[in-house]
């Protein structure tokens, strides 16, 4: 039996007629990284807010470390920390002042506040900016400070709502490293994201939600197997060469765009592929690699569902 720290059963939430969560079920294992993956408006923030005791679900049960997030919210609050979608740092205070203020509000002793502040500033590479007002910080620095604040009280579960949205690629990578470091220390991390790649990089388990419903759940490997590997896309200007190539190659063919998609496979199979074309005197106008995206997951799942339905019909 797995040791799950977060357990969600048939969670529902509506705003008026608008159903935001439509019966969510999932479990998060202690010490793991769990990613809730979904597009804008899928219900990620709503789920986080329910788990972090900020709002109440209409029905269903959510527990953290065995405590009910609604009825036993005080005990839940002792175990968690929340870093919301929008940075909750104080712009007019310095980074250090932000940490000290939140440390006091976490009821740490003044020695501990001092110690943790220095440690966290160092760990999140903010020591040089410690005495500057947050107003002058970059997006990445703000995010780091925001997460540093949520670590003050050494929580067991950390909620990170879209921790990298709006960051440049470099800051995003740094953030990924930080999150992986945190997980190594044994805390459970619950993060939401719109990027498949991010969930893939970080999460032990991924739940894909769409319109408040769970559409798929599994490890990154399982999801990727489901939607296939990286693809090579060959595009042709010449219609005759395109016809020839589509007969030679085993792949998905898009007639309109004169494009063929083939699983990328190993470097060896790639070399063979290009050789085959070359031997037949066919020159594609462009060669692209494309990683499967969240779009593909949705497309794939919905098309699969449709197929299942037609089988059952």
């Amino acid at each position: 039996m797995k040791d799950s720290i977060i357990s969600v059963q048939n969670l529902k939430k509506s705003y008026g007629k608008h159903t935001v969560l439509d019966g969510l079920n999932f479990e998060v294992e202690r010490g793991s990284i769990f990613a809730l993956l979904g597009e804008n408006g899928a219900g990620k923030t709503t789920t986080v807010r329910i788990l972090a005791t900020l709002i109440q679900a209409d029905s269903g049960i959510a527990t953290i470390a065995g405590y009910d997030t609604h009825r036993e919210s005080e005990s839940v609050k002792q175990k968690i920390s929340l870093t919301g979608q929008y940075a909750s740092v104080d712009e007019l205070l310095t980074g250090e002042e932000n940490l000290v203020m939140m440390g006091r509000l976490n009821h740490l002793s003044s020695n501990t506040v001092k110690k943790r502040t220095a440690e966290l500033l160092d760990q999140f590479e903010l020591t040089n900016a410690a005495k500057k007002r947050v107003k002058t910080y970059s997006g990445g620095m703000r995010r780091r400070l925001d997460i540093a604040i949520s670590l003050l009280a050494s929580p067991q579960v950390i909620f990170l709502d879209e921790p990298t949205t709006g960051l440049d690629p470099r800051s995003r990578r740094n953030m990924w490293n930080l999150i992986q470091q945190l997980a190594k220390n044994g805390v459970t991390i619950f993060l939401t994201t719109q990027y498949l790649e991010e969930a893939d990089q970080l999460a032990d388990k991924i739940a894909v939600i769409d319109s408040g419903k769970m559409v798929e759940e599994g490890t990154a490997e399982e999801l990727k197997r489901m939607i296939g590997d990286e693809k090579v896309e060959l595009t042709f200007d010449n219609a005759k060469e395109f016809q020839q190539a589509s007969e030679l190659l085993q792949g998905q063919v898009s007639e309109v765009e004169q494009r063929i998609s083939i699983p990328a496979g190993s470097p060896e199979s790639l070399r063979k592929l290009l050789n085959t074309l070359h031997e037949h005197g066919i020159e594609p106008s462009s060669v692209n690699f494309r990683k499967p995206t969240l779009d593909d997951v949705f497309m794939d799942i919905t098309s699969r569902k449709r197929k299942e339905q037609s089988v059952h019909a």
Binding site: L54, E74, S88, D90, M102
Partner: peptide, 17 residues
Amino acid sequence: VGGLFERLRSMPLLPSS
């Protein structure tokens, strides 16, 4: 509108502070 209020509400203190 910023997140401070929400963060305080998720902490074990009287957020009325």
